[in-house]
Design a protein around this nucleic acid. Structure first.
Lengths: 339, 339
DNA sequence: AGCCATATTGACAGCGCTGTCATGATTTGC
DNA sequence: GCAAATCATGACAGCGCTGTCAATATGGCT
């Protein structure tokens, strides 16, 4: 059952070579510019390629030659703009060097993630970048055995298989707690999406709680809602939370900015005073939070940078350069006006 | 200069075959399950593959066999959640059939887009999906000549090279104008991001203006700000607009929801009454707009669906099924409470 | 027993390209 | 003017896999 469509009649290098009156290998060299080829030979080959509308076949090239110029990227989600930003950084940097992204989205499912890794590996990518969900032992074994550059992004708290690029999510959580404490808040609550599948959000929350504990405090309430984070969920959750808790000097730490913006909307709709009645803190430093009537108190994460730096790691590795196995891009607390 | 890293010592099908005590081609058949292979042979091959940790090489497979299972996707941006949604739909659907996305992001630059198409074509993808910026003649020629399934997404107003999946952006703009007119608004303004590079936003605006013209109206003001759309830009632009225009019965049509939400934030910060002082209309039906204290008047676009359907188009084409060259997924006006 | 359909396997060539080594054509140096 | 170095090109084999066709084995049927 041969494919219905393309009668794959695309010109090959051999045809280009014939027209240019040179051998195939010379044409190959002319097209790639790796080895020296006489000026006029080069011109003839280029002309022939142009005339035939020749498009090189990188499958064949890679198979014969070696390094693929594809990098596999596995992300847990795309609905969250965080990963879209990271992907943008990755794509931008990789493309500069003529590399391309093959994408997999795991939906925060470790088993799915493992399957994706297996499948993407069949394309023999030059490297792998992933924001692991809760990677299975199987995944980690495969990655280690692949012999490829493997960059785990977003979090640097766990020991990486190979290289990690990101920030300490735990430290970010701690810093936010300390900031709120320093501002004088003593009544704290946490509102998150389903962090059982999101290890980074969990790490932040754990850091937040740990810092509270150091100060002898505990959360007045912790609400975890099923489903992915969203503005709507944050709004709904805030309403629920305030059914149980009195306002006035209450600070709510959200799992991220989306959720926090939802909280802000709830406050606005209810005519609550922010931060007097209700203080809010997010995470990510999304532009929407900063465009709110009151800028959101949050932590800036450098998502595009993480993507770019992860890409650079892969590329440097491929060029045989030594690289730091743990790369901390840091974060920055944005005081804002909601806490 | 051989690659520094992977001493590509990965097991090959030949090795699997040897261990299983069968010929290479039999092992191939066993791995793929296309042709019948005796039960115990199958088991032996699978065991051997398992033991060696065999990972098939799809580069070789595709080169030898035919159809690649990669689909090239070219998008103008990832910062806009619209395209992240589309990509999610694409990835989800393609993966179900064992296909993978190779990604390119053009940043709304037609020349860049053309280069991306050229490069991605070198991987001999099975198909192409793109949300064209302002495609160059060169791009269109290449696409037509590729002989591959080519799906242009988002807009169905222009004649597609091959297949189009999306909605009539122009009709969406018209519908919004008619809706506002019907609500009794007569004072209209338009606030957009740099639509010179975004043909879809432009089509919506044109439709909007055309419908106004039918009613004998023209825009009181049209403000186009440089740079990509964002909540911040919408907020800033609204402030600028209201420097020149009086409020009270004024309806502003924004290029999309991000911009409109920014407008809403400005209104909130200024204590303006929405919609009495200022009415706002967006486009996309993003969840954030619906979570606002007052849900945004907007038009729902089915982004994930567009992605899924575009993927299905490619797959169906590859299976030799006939498909409709123009697929309208439609849209829905969400009345909201801001106009 | 003899013949045929079916099931199972294999030999061979080739997908389009590149690494390696070898060859001929020039140039350079003394 | 001749050996050595340099430049430009080519022949060959092979990357890892699959399509095609052919071969063998097995069982059923008359």
């Amino acid at each position: 059952m041969p494919a219905a469509l393309p009668d794959d009649t695309r010109p090959t290098l051999a045809q280009v070579a014939r027209i240019a009156g040179v051998s195939e290998i010379t044409a190959s060299r002319a097209m790639r510019g790796t080895t020296l080829v006489a000026q006029d030979t080069l011109a003839r080959v280029q002309a022939a390629a142009q005339a035939l509308n020749y498009v090189p076949n990188r499958l064949a090239g890679t198979l014969a030659g070696g390094q693929s110029r594809q990098v596999a990227v596995v992300l847990p989600s795309l609905s969250n703009s965080v990963f879209a930003d990271v992907l943008k950084g990755l794509e931008t940097r990789l493309e500069q060097d003529g590399y391309h992204v093959i994408l997999g989205v795991s939906n925060y499912d470790p088993a799915h993630e493992e399957r994706l890794i297996t499948e993407l590996l069949t394309w023999r990518p030059a490297g792998l970048v992933l924001a692991p969900a809760e990677s299975t032992p199987g995944s980690r074994r495969m990655l280690a055995a692949s012999g490829l550059p493997v960059v785990e992004i977003m979090d640097i708290d766990r020991a990486p298989v190979d290289v990690a690029v990101g920030l300490s999510q735990r430290a970010a959580g701690q810093d936010m707690a300390r900031f709120l404490l320093q501002r004088g808040y003593r009544r704290m609550a946490y509102l998150g999406h389903d962090i059982s599948v999101d290890p980074r959000a969990r790490a932040r929350r754990d850091g937040f709680c740990a810092a509270l504990a150091e100060a002898g405090l505990t959360l007045e309430a912790m609400l975890l809602l099923p489903g992915p984070s969203s503005v709507g969920l944050g709004r709904k959750g805030t309403a629920q939370l305030l059914d149980r808790l009195s306002v006035g000097g209450l600070a709510v730490c959200y799992s991220n900015d989306d959720m926090a913006v939802g909280g802000m909307f709830h406050a606005m709709a209810q005519g609550l005073l922010v931060p007097a009645d209700l203080a809010l803190a997010g995470f990510n430093g999304l532009s929407i939070g900063q465009a709110l009537p009151q800028p959101l108190t949050t932590i800036e994460s450098r998502r595009v940078l993480i993507g770019e730096q992860a890409a650079s790691c892969v590329l440097n590795r491929l060029h045989g350069l030594a690289i730091d196995p743990v790369q901390n891009v840091g974060f920055r607390l944005i005081p804002g006006a909601t806490a």
